[in-house]
Structure formats: C-alpha cells, structure tokens
Amino acid sequence: MSLSREDVEKVSLLSRLKLSEDELVVMTDQMSRIIDYIDLLSEVNTDDVEPMTHAVEQFNVFADDVVHQSLPRDEALANAPKRDDECFHVPAVLGD
C-alpha cells in the first residue's frame, strides 16, 4: 500500500474533511490504488519540458479600475447558514 492510514488522516485534516474509521480504511485502499496508477507518469521523460498550466496561452488580461455596484448586503448574506443583519457568523476563531 503506497499510503498509510496516518498519511490519509493527515490529508483529511488538510482537506478539512472528517472521515469515520470505516471511511479512513476504504479511502486508504482506494487512494493507494489510484496513487499506484498515477505513478505511471514517472516513466515519462519530461526533461526540458515546460509545464503547461493553462489550456490556452493568454497573457495580460486586465480590467480597468472602475467601481461597479456591489451586491446589496441582504443578497450577499442571503445564503449564509448563520448570520446577523451585518455579518457572517462562525464558531469563535479564538478561544479553545
């Protein structure tokens, strides 16, 4: 297995996903098999090959610095799971 349970647990924290014990076991197995498969690329010689970040090469796309109307606040907050009339709410950032 190319990945350990601990590796997967660490990735789940980085990914901000809470996996159950069962999910961790399945995920470790599935990810290992996928990683083994994608390791196929190591056989390709990519010396002197420039990485291709964009499907189409474009440069210098800018917008002018002109103010546009922002959203009304009630629309900006409308989808928030927890909020007051002004702000989004989250569990205390400081604290515990």
């Binding site: 702000c87 205390a92 400081l94």
Partner: peptide
C-alpha cells in the same frame, strides 16, 4: 469571553 461567534466582514 471568547466563546461567542466570531463575525466576518468581507
């Protein structure tokens, strides 16, 4: 008291 929600202004 650090226990209430934090409020987010974007």
């Amino acid at each position: 008291n650090g226990k209430a929600d934090s409020r987010i202004d974007l």
